[in-house]
Nucleic acid binder design. Structure first.
Length: 118
DNA sequence: ATGCTGACTATGT
DNA sequence: TACATAGCCAGCA
């Protein structure tokens, strides 16, 4: 199986696999935006697809830290009634990610650089 | 091939 | 800061 930077399996068919592979690289205590993940996964501006891929993630999550992906405003994207937004926030707070009074994360502090944990 | 959809983003007011 | 719009692009029917 051919691999490339970061050990991401490039040959795998669907974009989902690639997206999940990128998300798995996000270290605990850090967050990345949908657009950022899309770009690193080689999907250009398909930020929306990232959300779509995470939504299609099996419950087990395959060990993918889906909670570390938030939108460019530093907020948890809402997906409707009964969504796991609360769980996501709790998981992040447990990793040390701080939410301000407006439920936003300071991307300048907790944003993932795409390289290593700062 | 065509059109619709979505856990988005950048830009303007 | 908040809301509205237009642009995005892979999946799926």
């Amino acid at each position: 199986m051919p691999k490339a930077r970061g050990g991401v399996d490039v040959k795998t068919a669907g974009s989902y696999e690639r997206i999940w592979a990128v998300v798995r690289r996000i270290p605990a205590g850090r967050v990345a935006t949908y657009g950022q993940v899309a770009r690193i996964a080689g999907l250009g501006g398909a930020a929306r697809l990232v959300g779509y891929a995470l939504h299609a993630l099996p419950e087990k999550g395959h060990g993918v830290p889906w909670q570390r992906v938030i939108n460019s405003q530093g907020r948890i994207s809402q997906r409707g009634l009964g969504g796991p937004e609360e769980v996501q926030r709790r998981l992040l707070e447990r990793e040390g990610v701080h939410f301000d009074l407006r439920d936003r994360v300071d991307l300048a502090r907790f944003g993932w650089t795409g390289r290593r944990a700062q």
